[in-house]
Each structure stands twice: as C-alpha cells, then as structure tokens.
C-alpha cells in the first residue's frame, strides 16, 4: 500500500472520530472503541477491494458479434487507410495548389519590375480554383477520417 494512501485513510478515520492525526495514533493504542472504528474503516477499504465483478447475461459475446459491421475484413482496408496516407493526400493537395499558382505566375520578361497590377490580377484569378482544390482535399480528408474512426 502506498504511504499517502495509508495516511489518507488514517487521516479520514481520525477526522471521523474527531481527533487530530498525531493523537489518533496513540489513541488507537489506548482506546479499544476507536481502534474498533478504525478497523471498520479498514474493513470498508477491504470491502471496496473485494467487490465482485458482474457478468452480462449468457450469450453476450454472440450478441456483440451480431452487432459488428458486416464483414470483419472491413478492418483490413480500414487499417490500410490509416492516417498516414491521409496526410500524404493533404500534402499532395497543398503541392497541387502551389504548382497551380506558380505556373500562373508571370514568367520571363512579364515578371520584370514593371509588372503591373493587371498581371497580378490575372494571376490571382487562379486563386479561387486553387482554394477550391485545397478545400476539397480537406473535405475528402475529413470524410476519410470520419469513415475510419466512425
């Protein structure tokens, strides 16, 4: 038994008896009634420890097996579809967005310092498409996660 746990029980018993812990130790030796009450506290602890576990009704395992999702092999593909590939998927989507945006970025002479706002505006028209790609990827990812963890 851990010390602090023992202390708490002694303290609890002393508190119930209305005495201080220090005097309780001595009183325990001198007072048979107190010792008896302390023993009942200890008995409570033992009783808690000895509480029996209960069993469900007969055939519980069969009822559980009937409730399982169809086909135990489902676990196989679920396992393959664990979180790692999902993160690869998200990484791929982010990469796609970056590539889409960089392809559209004005190249060569167009990318010179005199690049005007019209060119930047044209480039920015690709942004919604990229964000749609990204949001779709996140949505699919969440869907996969939900299926896996359902």
């Amino acid at each position: 038994m851990k010390n602090w746990e023992s202390d708490i029980w002694r303290y609890l018993a002393s508190e119930l008896m209305g005495t201080e812990l220090e005097s309780f130790e001595q009183a325990l030796k001198d007072d048979p009634i107190l010792a008896d009450k302390y023993e009942s506290a200890q008995r409570l602890k033992r009783n808690l420890k000895d509480f029996p576990r209960l069993s469900p009704n007969e055939g519980f395992a069969n009822r559980v097996m009937q409730k399982l999702p169809a086909g135990l092999n489902r676990n196989l593909w679920v396992q393959k579809l664990n979180r790692k590939p999902a993160w690869y998927f998200l990484g791929g989507a982010v990469l796609l967005v970056v590539v889409t945006l960089s392809i559209g970025w004005p190249q060569g002479s167009a990318a010179s310092s005199d690049m005007d706002w019209t060119q930047i505006w044209q480039w920015s028209t690709q942004l919604p498409l990229s964000f749609v790609c990204l949001i779709s990827a996140v949505f699919v990812l969440l869907l996969i996660d939900r299926v896996v963890t359902r």
Partner: peptide, 11 residues
C-alpha cells in the same frame, strides 16, 4: 463499447 472497440482497434 465492443462495437466501438472493433471499429477503432486499428487506431
């Protein structure tokens, strides 16, 4: 509980 255990065991 057991159905959940079954579904989440791979996690």
């Amino acid at each position: 509980v057991f159905v959940k255990v079954y579904r989440k065991l791979h996690l």
